[in-house]
Design a protein around this nucleic acid. Structure first.
Lengths: 255, 255
DNA sequence: CTTTGTGAACTTGTTCACAGCT
DNA sequence: AGCTGTGAACAAGTTCACAAAG
C-alpha cells in the first residue's frame, strides 16, 4: 500500500533501532525527574545510571537522534526532554480507548502516569450493559455497541485491550476495522492483525514464567556449586522422559 | 561468589538463549490449548502459527531443549507440554507475594492465570494499616511490618511490586534482604538490585510511548507518501530547535 | 582535561536452506 | 514423501576504545 520510501532527507536517515526506541521512554523519565529538580545539564554517565543502562549504550542511542550533547559538558536537560518527547510523538496528544473494564481495565483507567505524558483516556468500553454509565476514574463506561462510533468521533488510533482472553481477538478486529492502528494487549492471547497495525503485549504470566526459569537455574547452580565444593556427585532427579537428552541432572566433572 | 561453572554435562550445554526462554511460555500456552482439545501431535508449522512466530524460529528454539520431535510427523503435544513446563520450572510451584494492594495489586491478585501455572499467591502485603485483614481475591491483606516474616515462613523467592513509584525501591530492598531473588516490577521506576537478583518490569506508559512512536512514524510515512504522489514538497513544521539536525521534515527527493 | 560521538569488534538473535530421519 | 534439526549466512544490538570537540 505504501509508496516506496527508499530515500530520506540527507540529514540523518530515519532508522532508529527498535531497541533504542524502547529505551527512549526510560531516558525521558529520568530526564523529567532531573528537570523537576531544575538540574540544568547531565553527563551520559549520570543519566545512564539513573536510567539503569550503561553510558556507551546511552550515547549510542542518542547518536541516532542527532548530536544533542556538548563535549566536555554533557546534555542540556530541558533540550533533551523536548527532543525525545518530539521523537516519541508526545508533543501531540493521543486519545486512547480502554476496552474491558474489569479489575485490570479499572486499574489502568485509574493509572495516573497515563494522562501525564501525551495520552488521554477518550473512553472506557465494556460489553456488560450493567456497567454502562457507571463512572470509573471519573469517566462513564460506555457499551461496546458504541465502539466504532467512539473511535471515529475521537480519532482514536491507540486501543488498550483488557478483556478476557476469549474476547480479545474479536475486540481487536473491531478496533482495527474502526481505524485503530496500535494496540496494547493485556489479554493472554496472541492477536492476529493486518499489516500496518502494531501490537504490543503485556502478559503477567509470561513474565512470571521467565522469572521462574531463572529462579530454577539459580537453584540448580547453587546445588551444582555445593556439589562441586563437596566433590560429590549430585543425586539424580527421577525424570520420566522416554527419549531426548537426560533430564537436567546437575552432574559434576571432577577436576 | 559462585564457583566457576565452566563445564557442564556433556549432553547438551545449558545455554538456552534469553530470547528463546522468553518464547517458551508462548509455546506452552499454545500447546496447553491443543492439549485441552486432545490434539495428539502438532507440526512446527501449525504450532508456530498458533504462537505467532515463524516455524524456523520455533524449531531452532526447540533444538536448544533437545530433540523432542519426530521427523515426518511433528511434536507430541503432551510430551512437549511436560518438557517445556519442566524447563521453565513450572513442575514445582512458586509462592509469590504481591506488595502494594491498590487498584493494580488487587487486579493482579484477582488474575486467574496466576494460580493455574505453578504460581501461588502466598500473601498480599500493603503499607496501609486500614487494609490489614481485608480480604482481596479471598486472601487477607497483611501489613508490611510482616513482610520479612512472610517471606521467610513461606520460602518466597518471587515478589511482585505494585506500589507507587516512590515506595518501590525501599520495598525492593526489603524483599531482597528477606531472601527474594526475582522481582516483577509494575512501578514506573528503575530498581537497583544486587547481583544475582533478577528484575523484570512491566510498564504501561513505556509501552504506550513505544506505540506512539510507531504511530507517529506511520502518519509521517503517509504524509510523505501523499506528498510523493502529488510530487509536492511537504510543509515544514515549525520546530524551535537551536542546534542538532533539522526537525523531522518529510522532504522529498524528486526522481 | 573532560565528555561526547562513533567506527570497529564482538555478541546475540533470526532466517535460510537442506541433510538426515522416519 | 514429509518434517525435524541444524550448520551457515545474515541482521540487530552491545560494548570497546579512542579521535574530535569544547
Amino acid at each position: 500500500m505504501a509508496t516506496g520510501r527508499t530515500h530520506r532527507p540527507a540529514t540523518r536517515s530515519r532508522g532508529i533501532p527498535e531497541a533504542t526506541v524502547a529505551r527512549l521512554p526510560l531516558y525521558l523519565r529520568a530526564l523529567t525527574a532531573l528537570s523537576e529538580r531544575s538540574v540544568p545539564t547531565v553527563s551520559s554517565e549520570e543519566l545512564a545510571a539513573a536510567a539503569g543502562v550503561n553510558s556507551a549504550k546511552l550515547r549510542k542511542d542518542f547518536s541516532y537522534l542527532g548530536s544533542y550533547g556538548t563535549r566536555g559538558v554533557g546534555y542540556d536537560v530541558e533540550y533533551l526532554v523536548y527532543q525525545i518527547s518530539r521523537e516519541l510523538g508526545l508533543t501531540q496528544d493521543w486519545p486512547v480507548v480502554i476496552v474491558g473494564i474489569g479489575n485490570l481495565g479499572a486499574a489502568l483507567a485509574n493509572y495516573g502516569g497515563f494522562a501525564s505524558r501525551g495520552f488521554r483516556v477518550a473512553a472506557l468500553i465494556d460489553a456488560d450493559p450493567g456497567m454502562a454509565g457507571k463512572p470509573v476514574a471519573g469517566i462513564p463506561v460506555q457499551h461496546s455497541d458504541e465502539l466504532e462510533k467512539i473511535i471515529e468521533d475521537n480519532g482514536v488510533s491507540i486501543g488498550v485491550i483488557a478483556t478476557p482472553a476469549g474476547a480479545a481477538q474479536p475486540v481487536c478486529e473491531r478496533l482495527v476495522a474502526a481505524g485503530v492502528t496500535s494496540i496494547l494487549n493485556f489479554a493472554p492471547t496472541v492477536l492476529t492483525v493486518p499489516d500496518g497495525v502494531d501490537v504490543r503485549k503485556v502478559d503477567l504470566s509470561i513474565e512470571l514464567q521467565i522469572l521462574a526459569f531463572h529462579e530454577q537455574r539459580k537453584a540448580g547452580e547453587e546445588a551444582a556449586a555445593a556439589a562441586d565444593a563437596a566433590g560429590a556427585v549430585a543425586a539424580v532427579r527421577g525424570d520420566s522422559a522416554d527419549k531426548g537428552p537426560d533430564g537436567d541432572v546437575p552432574a559434576v566433572m571432577p577436576a
